[in-house]
């Protein structure tokens, strides 16, 4: 048994009246534009394969039209694929009957939407408990659970307001609380923070990371913003025109972009602000003996390079020691490694 929560296999989605025969054409290299011109079908997704480990935060990134929103809607089957498999906990979601699908959506997944998609005629409390209401959870218990999540996202005191009376950031907190109140294994976030101001967006990212470090859900997060992807993603998949361009962790994407498209994306990223010590640290075996004996600088695993680079320059340590949560060294960084990473 692998520890993948979600396994996407050979997933195709072609929009149009008769898509099945066109899969072969797409496999033979017919692109998105040609498919539209010649066959009047729109290519949504083409041969997507992706493993999402349990309890990880998977970012799916791409520009508009790249198929990222289409892909996330296949996980809870809001969109039917043309062909392929979507395994969740070893079960193919695409073979579920209508009733099984409703049960799956009630218990396994919850979704947060770009434009919040709150129910305007219901109060914050009623919105947050919507999923529990659908599941027919006892009202008193549903209220207790909902109030807990309203408090966790910092909306205590607003539970009897209507969504229209809240700011965008607060509305999306309601959206997040509504998803979490359902206690799903999988949290699907479709450009959840894209509609928010930069400052509010940063707040929401921090809330999500804090909650995730405690809850350990499997999160699938869609975004078009590389900085956001690098900040929150354990792993990042980049989509272009319905095809998977590259998949990997932040370091893979930043240090070894595979295609021109990805290269263009990462060109302007400030690496020292994005990469954390734990992302780039080396094993003890990769470090030469004499460096280990010398004077070292101690940094935390979650510190970004920017936070300690000045001390590396002024103190000139032989080695940077990366400390884990318990204070012991979990990895090392040689100055030459740092220099290599910061060089473009």
């Amino acid at each position: 048994m692998s520890n993948n929560k979600i396994e996407i296999r050979k997933l195709y989605k072609i929009f149009g009246p008769d898509p099945l025969p066109l899969i072969e054409k797409v496999n033979n290299g017919v692109g998105k534009d040609e498919l539209l011109d010649k066959y009047q079908h729109v290519l949504g997704l083409s041969n997507i394969n992706l493993d999402i480990p349990d309890q990880s935060l998977q970012v799916i990134m791409g520009l508009s039209g790249s198929g990222k929103s289409t892909l996330i809607r296949h996980i809870n089957r809001l969109i039917e694929p043309t062909s392929g498999a979507m395994m969740v906990d070893g079960q193919d979601v695409l073979t579920l009957s209508q009733n099984e699908l409703l049960e799956f959506r009630k218990n396994k997944t919850a979704m947060v939407f770009q434009k919040f998609a709150l129910l305007p005629h219901k109060t914050v409390l009623q919105n947050v408990s919507f999923g529990l209401f659908i599941k027919k959870v006892d009202p008193a218990e549903a209220e207790k659970k909902s109030m807990y999540w309203i408090e966790r996202v910092g909306l205590l005191g607003f539970e009897n307001r209507y969504p229209q009376q809240l700011s965008g950031g607060m509305q999306q907190r309601v959206g997040l609380a509504r998803a979490l109140a359902n206690d799903p294994d999988i949290l699907l976030m479709d450009e959840a923070f894209s509609a928010l101001d930069p400052l509010i967006r940063k707040d929401m990212q921090d809330i999500l990371l804090e909650l995730q470090s405690e809850l350990k859900k499997t999160v699938v997060f869609i975004t078009h913003d590389l900085d956001e992807a690098l900040k929150i993603g354990d792993r990042i998949a980049i989509l272009k025109d319905g095809c998977m361009d590259q998949e990997g962790d932040a370091v893979d994407i930043l240090m070894s972009p595979k295609t021109d498209y990805v290269k263009k994306f990462v060109e302007d990223v400030n690496r020292s602000r994005v990469l954390k010590a734990k992302n780039i640290m080396q094993n003890v075996s990769e470090i030469s003996k004499d460096l280990l004996d010398g004077q070292s600088l101690k940094v935390k695993a979650d510190d970004v390079i920017e936070k300690f680079i000045d001390r590396v320059v002024t103190d000139k340590p032989n080695l940077v020691e990366v400390l884990g949560a318990d204070g012991s060294a979990i990895g090392y960084l040689s100055p030459s490694r740092l220099a290599e990473i910061l060089r473009k």
């Binding site: 809870n76 809001l78 699908l101 409703l102 049960e103 799956f104 959506r105 009630k106 218990n107 997944t109 919850a110 979704m111 939407f113 770009q114 434009k115 998609a117 709150l118 129910l119 305007p120 005629h121 919507f130 999923g131 209401f133 659908i134 599941k135 359902n182 699907l188």
Partner: peptide, 28 residues
């Protein structure tokens, strides 16, 4: 709004739950 209906779907609402909880009140 289509997105609100999608939200109701994503929580596993049945067609009649959607009608009573979402569509009818919003159409009122």
């Amino acid at each position: 709004d289509r997105e609100i209906l999608e939200a109701a779907d994503s929580f596993g609402a049945t067609p009649s739950q959607k009608l009573r909880q979402v569509q009818f009140p919003l159409a009122l």
